[in-house]
Nucleic acid binder design. Structure first.
Length: 1082
RNA sequence: GGGCGAUUAGCUCAGUUGGUUAGAGCGCCUGCUUUACACGCAGGAUGUCGGGGGUUCGAGUCCCUCAUCGCCCACCA
């Protein structure tokens, strides 16, 4: 065979291995007769862009688990795919459209825009899959799904229909965060705060017909004065004195508890409150009385009268004590409106694009920010501005468009999360059917360790059950309804036909509607003016009984998407329209664990050409019944609520069982400053850059090693300087005013890490992290140790059964250590602690196999008698190391496995190890308990101590490595026996030219001394007497300190009496040993 | 404001139920190109375990408190 290169080069080997895996479909999974199965559903990356380090961590963890279970012989499926990521993707494509062509989506139209996004998706999906394959992800690539492909679309349709029919989906008014740029609602978690310089405007609303003693104006304050056009009330507290007293009492209590340094501030606050009570209270009492009297104020500019109301939302201790109420444009005011629906209106003044609508009167058509200026100018002109304060205001911005969001009243679709009267049925029609009070409650229960589904499953969190369960639970218990509609074009369209029908019209359709609604696959609801949702039959009964009902809202949903096309024209002519909105991305990703397996019917799942079928094949189960429920969900803790909870919920709803039993939450990767990585900040790292620089295995090795428990990981980032190629530490690099542009500390020149400024002549720099050198070095070590083995195994390595007990000391030692290592690796993997697992294997491989075993057997390689056994143990050990390392570093181990197979096709110690063409299909090592020999390990480690001490003496006196020195050891009893057995090893490893072990050995003047346990070691002929005396004195001093400490401890009555006897005994023994050592050094 | 978490060597992190002298890797220092590997080998130095208090025979580990940092949630007329 050809000799291995001296240095491991991942760039040539990794692509070849990837190709081999793909060509042989090494990761294909099919249902078979095996009971043990392992299923991971990949957290689907968005098709908005390339993967980052967080994805790399996530994917590597999943791959590690999947490869491990595959080697354990479990039928292992890792399902891959991508998410259409509604708002994110549409926004990226729209932005490009505008930048490159100067067009908006309205110029293109719905269909054309969606086509453009599909093209974008194809391009990015390919890139993402390429990245994942470069990382070594062992997914079944023939089963990849996309959340908008036909299989997933069918599952979305089915779920929506079921929920709709069950009355769990409703349409309601909701104040949403409105992105005026993208013209869509934005979820709370898609917002970020940014401090903006703004003003706090105090406005005066004239009181209508003020009586004596009453104010002529009521003062209210706002940061968004244009919203006053939509005001429908002003409010003050109903019992201002009580309220302000309560605040004062609370502040006094806080003062009591506060630490000294906070007291002055609280005292000041208290003083302000008391002052305020005396200055403002009389006025507030008056206004409260006016409110109760039904008095009104004149809303300036609009010339509308609006009532003064009392509501607890108006805090007497703040501002003027009165607030303007704009229900359609402020979440708190919206709640106030909810409490006063009969008394006040709700007026929307905004168009979806952020301009003012007709309700804004003279200001209609103006942009909200222009209107703000105009409103203030006009108010000022009328003398209705009290004062204007400068203030920095934290304002919500849309993460996608970076624009300021507005609270906006709109119709949205919701899934009812709260408990429902009579409860709901989950897994209807399946064997696992059960009832729960509501959707959220079902998911809460599923994560309760005492709860079990009908198949005996529940959901647990790793590696910190309590901590992550709390996050999951505290979010779900709020049972907030899930807003599932998005005003986008990219996504699953909401399959509801809806319209408002006049009384005569709906009654004329009575027979048609009633019979139609009774058909299978059709669900219909009629919403009455009072908001109740009724079946068509009930609705007609109500209509018959109440002639005042002028119109009703009708909603129809079909199970079969084809029906939309077939019946669309009829429904349109009947006055119904298909809802223009699409579903929240999480609606389809929530179904991921079962939609990808073909639910609701794998046999008829519309898969793509060339994909593995999902229905039953070859007398085996179909994919859904075989692979659902799955095993483990691997993700970061940020989407426990958004995604994990919803997958649990829909899994229970559709199938009556949890989608997975284990949730493995891995660490978040931070930069050198402890900040979250993000591409736009310029502290993100592209895994592909790391792979190019260090290799995929190196990246994987380091990621596994870093994943310890719940601790987030700091990964210092360096940019490769485009000027001199040297790394620049990003944590300390000076930022410029351009986002993502920094200064090179050596040349002072600008460089760009986000790739946005190429056209401005600022050179780009790749971001890497030197942390990955550790992984590269490890791979190189593994490569070279294997290279050593291959150079020495020769042609003659054959398998012959050896009883492990008959082997040489070092052979038995390495096998004993191997058995221990396998157990440790298993424990680490089972506990979701990759760092422990890979650390155990690394330490065995590097510190034991390389540093000791390989060195010890070198002389045997030329010895006909002892050589063959050593080669056999070496081949077997390497075999096991490659298997153990495969889940972590799959490429290099796969490559070396092939080479090992060529040179030693049959290998093993007492019995032949089972082989496999590909290492990824090989059997996971078995820990051979009978190979463990702790007393032998103790003797070996004694020998290692002795060798290390001799080496230390040699190093201290700078004995040239080539020069050997005689070693004499004073030892007796068991120690002498143990060392005598290893005499040859000591001589070899410590480079001694002779070795004498005897109880009668005495120290000579030319000897340097070392004491190990109860033996004295003399290295002769090298000593510098002055240096030696200094060293011995230092050692004695150290020993004496420890002895003193121990003596003190042992003379403590409390310790001797209360500590466990074993601990006391141990301390006594240590003391005796230390004292003996001190004697020896004197 | 509420909740969660962190603080251990210059850096990144381990440290099981409290129990000898607190560990690893990187970096640093010394020596070595010894035929697998300088992406290496041999050896070495480095810690008031964030501060203070308490419980205990005994605290990095448990409790209280302060400080600093991070994350999540709520709120901000």
């Amino acid at each position: 065979m050809t000799e291995l290169a001296k240095q491991y080069d991942p760039s040539t080997i990794e692509p070849a291995i990837t190709q081999r895996w793909l060509e042989t479909k090494a990761f294909a999974a099919h249902p078979d007769k095996r009971d043990e199965r392992y299923v991971i559903m990949m957290p689907l990356p968005n098709v908005t862009g390339a993967l980052h380090m967080g994805h790399a961590m996530d994917n590597v963890m999943q791959d590690m688990l999947t490869r491990w279970h595959r080697m354990l012989g479990h039928n292992s499926l890792w399902m891959a795919g991508t998410d259409h990521a509604g708002i994110a993707t549409q926004s990226v494509v729209e932005k490009r459209l505008f930048e490159l062509e100067g067009k908006t989506r309205h110029d293109l139209g719905r269909e054309e825009l969606v086509n453009r996004i599909w093209a974008w998706k194809d391009q990015y999906q390919e890139r993402i899959v390429g990245q994942q394959q470069a990382m070594g992800c062992s997914c079944d690539w023939d089963r990849q799904r996309f959340t908008m492909d036909d299989v997933c679309a069918r599952a979305v349709r089915e779920t929506f229909f079921k929920m709709f029919r069950d009355g769990l989906i409703y349409q309601g008014d909701r104040l949403v965060n409105w992105d005026c740029a993208l013209q869509t609602a934005v979820a709370d978690d898609e917002l970020y705060k940014e401090t903006v310089h703004g003003n706090f405007y105090h406005l005066k609303y004239p009181v209508i017909d003020p009586k004596d003693g009453e104010p002529t104006h009521i003062i209210v304050a706002t940061t968004r004065p244009e919203t006053m056009l939509g005001d429908t009330a002003v409010a003050c507290h109903g019992e201002p004195e009580k309220a302000i007293d309560a605040v004062i009492a609370e502040t006094e209590a806080r003062l009591q508890k506060a630490p000294g340094k906070d007291k002055p501030a609280i005292e000041e606050e208290l003083e302000r409150l008391r002052e305020r009570k005396s200055t403002h209270l009389p006025l507030l009492e008056t206004i409260a009385a006016m409110a109760k009297d039904g008095r009104q104020v004149m809303l300036p500019l609009q010339n509308r009268t609006i009532p003064i109301i009392t509501d607890e939302w108006a805090k007497p201790e703040l501002g003027s004590g009165c607030v303007k109420i704009t229900p359609a444009h402020d979440p708190n005011d919206y709640e106030v409106w909810g409490r006063h629906k009969d008394d006040i209106d709700i007026i929307n003044i905004l168009e979806p694009d952020g301009t003012l609508n007709d309700n804004a009167g003279a200001y209609a058509g103006k942009d909200r920010f222009d209107a703000r200026k105009q409103v203030m100018a006009d108010l000022d002109g009328q003398g209705l501005v009290d004062r204007i304060e400068d203030r920095d205001i934290e304002i919500d911005h849309s993460d996608r468009s970076k624009s300021i969001v507005e609270p906006y009243l709109s119709k949205q679709w919701f899934v009812k999360m709260s408990d429902v009267e009579g409860g709901i049925v989950l897994g209807r029609g399946t064997e696992n059917e059960f009832r729960s009070p509501g959707l959220a409650q079902a998911a809460i229960d599923a994560a309760d360790p005492t709860w079990k589904s009908k198949t005996g499953r529940n959901v647990g969190f790793h590696p910190d059950q309590d901590r992550y369960w709390k996050i999951f639970h505290s979010w779900l218990v709020e049972k907030r309804d899930w807003c599932i509609s998005r005003q986008l074009w990219w996504g699953h369209r909401i399959p509801v036909w809806r319209g408002t029908l006049e009384r005569d019209r709906i009654l004329s359709l009575r027979d048609a509607v009633t019979s139609f609604a009774q058909q299978d696959g059709v669900a219909a609801w009629v919403t009455l003016p009072d908001g109740t949702q009724a079946t068509p039959a009930d609705a007609f009964t109500t209509l018959d009984g109440d002639e005042s009902i002028a119109r009703v809202d009708v909603q129809v949903c079909f199970l079969d998407a084809e029906k939309d096309k077939q019946l669309g024209p009829i429904l349109s002519s009947g006055g119904l329209e298909l809802d223009p909105d699409v579903l929240d991305t999480w609606f389809s990703s929530a179904l991921w664990p079962h939609s990808t397996l073909g639910w609701p019917d794998p046999a008829t799942a519309p898969i793509n050409d060339g994909q593995a079928p999902l229905g039953a094949q070859d007398n085996a189960d179909d994919c859904l019944s075989y692979y659902y429920p799955g095993s483990c969900l691997v993700t970061g803790r940020d989407i426990i609520t958004l995604w994990v909870a919803r997958m649990v919920l829909t899994g229970l709803y559709n199938l009556g069982d949890v989608p997975f039993t284990d949730v493995f939450l891995h660490a978040t990767i931070l930069d050198g400053k402890g900040e979250r990585m993000s591409k736009s900040k310029g502290n993100g790292i592209d895994p592909v850059d790391i792979i190019q620089h260090y290799g995929a295995d190196a990246m994987r090795y380091v990621l596994c090693e870093m994943q310890t428990g719940t601790q987030d990981i700091r990964l210092p980032v360096q940019a490769i300087s485009p000027f001199d190629g040297e790394p620049i530490e990003m944590a300390t690099a000076k930022a410029t005013s351009k986002q993502g542009v920094f200064l090179d500390p050596r040349t002072g020149k600008e460089f760009d890490v986000v790739g946005l400024y190429e056209d401005q002549g600022i050179p780009g720099a790749k971001a890497i992290s030197q942390r990955f050198e550790i992984g590269r070095n490890f791979c190189n070590k593994l490569w070279n140790a294997s290279r050593f083995a291959f150079m020495n195994l020769g042609e003659s390595t054959k398998f012959e059964p050896h009883d492990a007990k008959d082997l040489a000391l070092e052979d038995r030692w390495i096998l004993s250590r191997l058995a221990d290592t396998i157990e440790a690796a298993n424990r680490g993997l089972e506990a979701y602690n990759p760092s422990v697992a890979i650390g155990a294997v690394r330490d065995f491989f590097w510190n034991e196999l390389c540093d000791w075993y390989l060195e010890v057997i070198k002389p045997r390689m030329n010895d006909d008698a002892s050589g063959p056994a050593a080669r056999q143990v070496l081949a077997a050990s390497l075999d096991q190391v490659l298997r153990l390392l495969h889940p972590f570093v799959p490429f290099i181990t796969e490559e070396l496995w092939t080479k090992l197979g060529e040179q030693a096709p049959q290998r093993g110690v007492d019995r032949e190890l089972t082989g496999a063409d590909l290492l990824c299909h090989a059997q996971w090592p078995e820990a051979r308990g009978e190979w463990r020999d702790e007393s032998l390990e103790a003797a070996f480690s004694f020998m290692q101590d002795v060798v290390t001490n001799i080496r230390e003496v040699r190093a201290r006196y700078q004995v040239p490595p080539r020069q050997s020195a005689p070693v004499r050891i004073k030892a007796s009893g068991a120690s002498a026996e143990q060392l005598t057995a290893c005499a040859a090893l000591i001589q070899n490893m410590a480079n001694a030219d002779s070795i004498e072990i005897d109880a009668g050995v005495t120290k000579t003047d030319d000897a340097a001394t070392a004491v190990v346990r109860d033996v004295e070691i003399f290295v002769t002929g090298v000593v510098d007497p002055a240096e030696e005396a200094k060293k011995l004195a230092k050692q004695r001093e150290k020993l004496q300190q420890k002895i003193d400490g121990l003596k003190k401890k042992l003379s403590n009555q409390g310790f001797v009496e209360k500590a466990p006897p074993a601990v006391v005994e141990k301390e006594r023994a240590t003391l005796a040993e230390l004292e003996a050592q001190l004697d020896a050094l004197s």
